[in-house]
Nucleic acid binder design. Structure first.
Lengths: 235, 235
DNA sequence: GCAACGTTTCGTCGAATGTTGAAACATTGG
DNA sequence: CCAATGTTTCAACATTCGACGAAACGTTGC
């Protein structure tokens, strides 16, 4: 046997391992079902993937062993979730490249998804990117590498538009920059991103569309974003 | 059977299909071998992956059918290459998330790779991002979406530092913004990125390290980058 | 305790996939 | 035209992997 490429000794197995986890439609369905950041029990995931509970159990075991999923024990239920937002990002990226007509890609075609959607547990799409940019433009973020923290100015800005109260403690919440695959720019991820997104739901700025990751802005939200310098209708 | 998730009808199969292609170590090795943008004949890829030519042929067929690879017929040789830089990017992204200790990720640990490397056929890493930023800061790019073209000012800047000649016709070459996974910023991809990178090799600013995608700057290159406002040693 | 419920384990079946050598096909160069 | 070289096809084999039902395991609530 002639000498082979030794430059990437373990990476190939690493890639193959992740590929194996993604190579099954049932597992893909499970991952996609959790892409909105929800936490779901095994039986429900089985139903959503269209397979028997026992089959799902095997798949879930593989996915957790592979550290793509994490599990939360709660009595006779076992709730599964994506291990972290990197996994979500990876999956979002995956379906963009490669096979088939670009039309088969939901993010290429669906303007509703392009405008505003959740990526794992935080805001993505044109709106996600725009919000990130507006806050950053106001020096609202302390950035170092991919780490993000809300600055003094950022807190002030959020209070101005009514998204932050005086007794909220968000200074310490760590965020991360997250690449928005449709916009090819950054949006806010990490715990800070999740917090802000939760707040947008609480304050009723945004509402989830049924059975999609797409989001719509309420009238309150439109006004709020407008106060941030963003016009929903122009996104 | 209870109702299942109909929100993503075909995406799951799409993901599973790409996952299947990545799920084999031999195929992963083939893809990794082409990650530096090289074009290689089937036999060589077989050798690099450590498999028989007949086996490699089967894998290559799958990869081309899946549009992850493209093939260039040239006499009795068939040269394979990555289908496009999206595929390269997807693979680079893949190995970041998921299984195993982060230490097993080459881009996390290797400072040489972090500083300058090729992504498919163009420049990436800290240098790639910095070059993109410097040219952009000088209004050197016409940006629209992910499309990039070199502007008047950009041509002028490149001529100043000796990377562009008067008889070069680069106005029409289409570039694309490409997300740099280690830096979490943009660098220049597409045909324009490939052109610039080729030019950097031609002018001997950069040299490939043996058997890696990592790059080193020559003395000429250091001076050149310095003229662009970049200090190689500070990257 | 006991019944109901959710989840996992186990055994088995069938389909899909990777592997190879030998043979066929294609191209080049004498 | 023929030999050498590179690539693909073919047939056969071994292995892996997903699917399911039945049974075991664990938890909750009466």
């Amino acid at each position: 046997m002639l000498p082979m490429n030794t430059a990437t000794p373990q990476t190939r197995y690493h890639i193959a391992e992740i590929g194996s986890l993604l190579s099954d439609p049932a597992r893909a369905a499970i991952l996609l079902a959790l892409m909105d950041g929800t936490i779901r029990p095994a039986g429900e995931l089985a139903r959503m993937a269209g397979i028997a509970p026992s089959t799902a159990s095997a798949h879930l075991r593989k996915l957790t062993d592979g550290e793509l999923l994490a599990v939360i024990d709660q009595g006779r239920h076992r709730y599964y979730r994506l291990a972290n937002d990197r996994v979500a990002q990876m999956i979002e990226n995956l379906s963009v490249a490669g096979i088939g007509a670009p039309a088969s890609n939901p993010w290429r075609g669906d303007p509703v998804m392009l405008r505003a959607r959740t990526c794992y547990n935080h805001l993505a799409g044109a709106l996600g990117v725009a919000v990130f940019e507006k806050i950053r433009a106001a020096d609202g973020f302390a950035l170092s590498g991919e780490a993000v923290h809300l600055s003094e100015a950022g807190s002030r800005r959020l209070k101005q538009v009514g998204l932050l109260d005086n007794d909220d403690a968000v200074d310490g919440i760590p965020g991360r920059t997250c690449v928005d695959w449709t916009e090819r720019r950054f949006h806010l991820g990490g715990k800070l991103g999740a917090w802000l997104t939760t707040r947008l739901f609480e304050r009723e700025w945004l509402r989830r569309r049924t059975s999609t990751r797409a989001l719509t802005a309420t009238t309150v939200g439109r006004n709020g974003f407008s106060a941030l310098g963003l016009e929903w209708d122009r996104l």
